[in-house]
Design a protein around this nucleic acid. Structure first.
Lengths: 251, 251
DNA sequence: CAGTGGTCTAGACCACGGC
DNA sequence: CCGTGGTCTAGACCACTGG
């Protein structure tokens, strides 16, 4: 059994766990082309010797590399590096990416409104768990911008149960994301997204300072926490010519 | 150690593997509310007795239930059923879902064109692996419909290397999906999707029989096979008022 | 403190691919 | 046939939770 020899160069991550260290190390080697596209990785037995760990630990590292799209396996043959760059990590919950170079102008937002409102049936369906009866929720209306360019108009409906008094902390450029995580210790877990194309109505056009009928990417999403309780529901009107939604879907 | 007692009722799936049988069984019990929303599952030790298997096998079943969003775990406390229905299985590669009730009219398509074309630089970038030099690809132009209603106009660029002569098998309602899988034994693995909203150009409007300027959901996607080689690149113009794109993104 | 899930080991047998 | 990854077992120790 040899000693552990990890890749040199930029470290991708640290971990206290063997399987995660090995995952980072092999990922590093794939990125550094020490393991080239299409090539076969050392077989599990060899990796056991290389890292001086059990087979289970090797396989756990490989599982993660597989899920993230770096390798694939063929039973009876071996484990191979995918022939093209791949990182299937889903463009996480903040998955809208700007077309425009964000070199000039920083992302910022204008809060138009932040208050408690009565729930409509439509929104209640999105925020309700079933047994709890919600009457009100927090409502935030914002324009998101890049520098002085409008990007989208956004309405957010927040589950009051999960983050009481959150509107008291809302300021123009506060990250609601950070509020959820730090102030309320909530971890966002899943988002159900819907996207469609619509023509801007006169009122939306006015808010976004665009022309009536311009193409709008209308997105709704319900974001939930770890036990699947809805944290918030958001509807957003993205100016079509300024945003692209990107994602990876596996199999 | 007791004997295995599986759920009765509708079977969700069969498997030769213990971990998969247990996965199906627990999923069944969650759906049947034998394990209720928010409730704690039996601890791993108990599940080992219930199913008469080792801890590793139990944990493998639980891993899958976790990935698909049925359960969550809290270290030191236990494993719990998510409080709301959840199935995170990504709305797989055919993830466009119709708004319109598909009760009337069946999905069908009109092939406008199917031939071999020279690659432009733009398409080559999407289909190239790097070392191989592609000169041509297969090109298919289609209108997808539901009954007599147009849904989208679609241009597909297919990697010739992976499925030679595929255009000879293209007929109006053939499933290209099935061709890839059955005729060429290719398994689609991943898709990188981009979505944006645009106003219909005069030419697109004419093809889809809509009005100039109507909102269009313009989607491009590159679909790859297991070793990450691109199988095809597609660009599609979905009539905004008739389609919604839905997906789940985790964390 | 006891109880839970998370990590890790050492080993066995099987299924599939290719020679 | 051999070599590969896939399944499964039996057991150990650790880290976090809660009373």
């Amino acid at each position: 059994m040899s000693r552990i020899v990890y890749s040199t160069g930029t470290m991708l991550g640290e971990s206290q766990f063997l399987h995660e260290k090995i995952y980072f190390d092999i990922k590093q080697k794939i990125i550094n082309k020490e393991y080239k596209f299409g090539a076969m990785l050392p077989k599990e037995m060899d990796l056991m010797d290389i890292y001086d760990v059990s087979r289970h630990t090797i396989r756990k590292s490989m599982d993660r590399l597989f899920i993230e799209g770096y390798i694939y396996k063929v039973k009876g043959k071996g484990t191979f590096v995918k022939s093209v760059k791949a990182d299937y990590k889903l463009s996480n919950l903040s998955s809208f990416s700007e077309i425009m170079d964000s070199q000039e102008g920083k992302p910022n937002s204008i809060v138009i409104e932040a208050r408690e409102i009565k729930l409509t049936d439509r929104i209640r369906k999105k925020l309700d768990v079933g047994d709890v009866q919600l009457d009100t929720c927090y409502y935030i209306e914002r324009i998101r911008r890049n520098g002085k360019t409008n990007l989208c108009f956004e309405k957010t409906y927040i589950n009051k149960e999960l983050c009481p008094n959150i509107i008291d902390f809302i300021t123009p450029n506060v990250s609601t994301y950070k509020l959820y995580e730090d102030k309320y210790n909530l971890t966002m877990d899943n988002g159900e997204y819907n996207l469609e194309a619509i023509n801007a109505s006169p009122s939306i056009a006015k808010i976004l300072d665009i022309t009536d009928g311009d193409a709008i990417l209308y997105m709704t999403a319900r974001i939930t926490i770890i036990d699947a309780r809805p944290l918030y529901f958001v509807e957003a009107y993205y100016i079509g010519s300024r945003y692209i939604f990107s994602t990876n879907l596996k199999r």
